[in-house]
Design a protein around this nucleic acid. Structure first.
Length: 431
RNA sequence: UCCGGAAUAGCUCAGCGGUAGAGCGGGUGGCUGUUAACCACUAGGUCGGGGGUUCGAAUCCCUCUUCCGGAGCCA
């Protein structure tokens, strides 16, 4: 007996096979029983017919409940009602474990209930589709970087100090060394890596103890940071664009079924795979003010501003050359204007907000030291970081992608909490 | 942290001063093609906690708790 997965069903038409999985739904009609079966690779309608199966086996099949685990043997054949699809004519049903009343019903549920049952909710078709898109996005990012000379360089999660002093950190006691902090970005460590490997990236969870309560924030999320030696601001943006467009193409190619389940507008995604728009922060502010925004030239973009900037644009928009006051200390100054930095954000279309932050880094020892002193940073703690500007400093750039933000855009779903298996939010840590 | 909104059956909600309701899920029975299947019957509730107003409170008021949406900050 051949054990197969639902995804391969078409290859076994007319041949008796065995499938191992769970019951998504069950419908009965007298002598007929429809078991909607799933095995992780996909869903399949399986059909039991009492006269064919015999009374004893049929009664055993009827004991199955929602989400019971089961091994089903049968013969794949063309679906009687849906063209191009397959169903399985059951020859035997072996319950593995009969589930009691399943908490997640067939009708709609509220977000609080679903999040409290997240460990079960991930079995639902939409959640299944999102998790598979997450896998594809993750894979596509690594693939692009590997193909462009980047090496994986894992930065630590426990760190002795802040990367960007402005945001709040989660603290942990670290033996006799005092407080350690959960990393909010591996960037500074990555900068050490390029001096060895040339181009590096890390990919892992980062933590922000911000009391943010919006559909775009998690306290624990996954970030991909990339850093490259001898890459300037312009080339940095080219890499970012190439990477994002590769992700779009990969998701369209590998996740067609998932995007159908999610009712994602695929045309909108296709349209985003074209040259990205580029604006300076100054131009963006002018553009926004013409359209009624209250934003000033010295300030960051608000959520409505991000929406307004990409309204009517099929492609993401780069916002570059930011006022130095609102960006981090390590960003390199624009040689054409001392008040600006060579940094960029990338705003996704369709209102999905900022997905990338990047910049060329300051590579001059004295300038960097001066800025750190001006921000009253503990210089001794950052000796290692300053050393990079002392022993073979080079022009270099990097950027960070918020994985969940990117997935939110790809899947078109409303809230970031559904893009990660177990979301961590300000008021939620269970399960 | 600030500004709004909500809390009634396991779940989603209706009821908004006068005997606690529906759909789904559960149980029992029926049905040879179902697609959140359908039909019949059935079990299931200190109406979030506390206090107050009233002859009478799920319903009005106060308070606490929890959750949701938005803002700020950011990815």
């Amino acid at each position: 007996m051949q054990d197969i997965f639902v995804k391969d069903i078409a290859k076994y038409k007319g041949q008796e096979v065995r499938l191992k999985g769970w019951v998504r739904n069950i419908r009965s009609s007298g002598k007929l029983l429809f078991i909607i079966f799933r095995d992780g690779s996909g869903d399949l309608q399986t059909v039991a017919f009492r006269p064919d199966l015999g009374d004893e086996a049929f009664e055993k099949a009827k004991t199955l409940s929602l989400e019971s685990s089961v091994i089903i043997t049968g013969t794949p054949k063309a679906h009687q009602k849906l063209e191009g699809q397959y169903e399985l004519a059951i020859t035997s049903v072996e319950p593995v474990q009969i589930a009691p009343e399943y908490p997640i019903g067939k009708k709609e549920h509220g977000p609080d209930f679903l999040l409290s049952n997240r460990h079960l909710w991930i079995r639902a078709p939409k959640q299944w589709a999102i998790l598979r898109v997450r896998h594809a996005v993750y894979y596509a990012i690594c693939e692009y970087l590997n193909d462009n000379g980047f090496f994986r360089f894992d930065s630590p999660i426990l760190t002795p100090n802040a990367c960007e002093g402005t945001t709040t950190l989660f603290e942990v006691e670290y033996f006799d060394e005092g407080m350690a902090y959960l990393s909010q970005s591996g960037q500074l460590y990555l900068e050490t890596g390029i001096m060895s490997l040339g181009r590096v990236y890390d990919f892992g969870p980062v933590f922000r103890a911000e009391r943010s309560k919006t559909r775009k924030h998690l306290t624990e999320f996954w970030m991909m940071d990339a850093e490259a030696a001898y890459v300037d601001h312009e080339e940095n943006m080219q890499i970012q664009e190439g990477l994002i467009r590769h992700v779009i193409r990969t998701v369209l190619e590998k996740c067609d079924k998932e995007l159908e389940i999610l009712e994602r507008d695929k045309e909108a995604l296709k349209a985003a795979d074209a040259p990205f728009k580029k604006m300076t922060h100054y131009e963006a502010v002018e553009y926004l003010r013409e359209r009624g925004s209250e934003i000033s030239h010295g300030s960051d973009l608000g959520a409505p501003d991000e929406l307004l900037l990409t309204e009517g644009s099929a492609v993401p928009v780069f916002i570059e050359k930011w006022p130095k006051e609102i960006k981090a200390f390590y960003m390199k100054r624009d040689p054409e204007n001392e008040n600006l930095v060579l940094g960029n954000d990338l705003i996704a279309p369709e209102g999905f907000g900022e997905i990338i932050g990047g910049s060329q880094r300051e590579d001059d020892y004295d300038l960097l030291l001066g800025r750190m002193q001006a921000e009253k940073m503990p210089i001794e703690e950052y000796r290692w970081f300053l050393d990079l500007r002392k022993y073979g400093s080079v022009p270099h750039s990097g950027f960070g992608i918020g994985l969940e933000r990117l997935i939110t855009w790809m899947t078109g779903i409303h809230h970031i909490r559904e893009t990660i298996p177990f979301p961590r939010m300000i008021y939620r840590i269970y399960p």
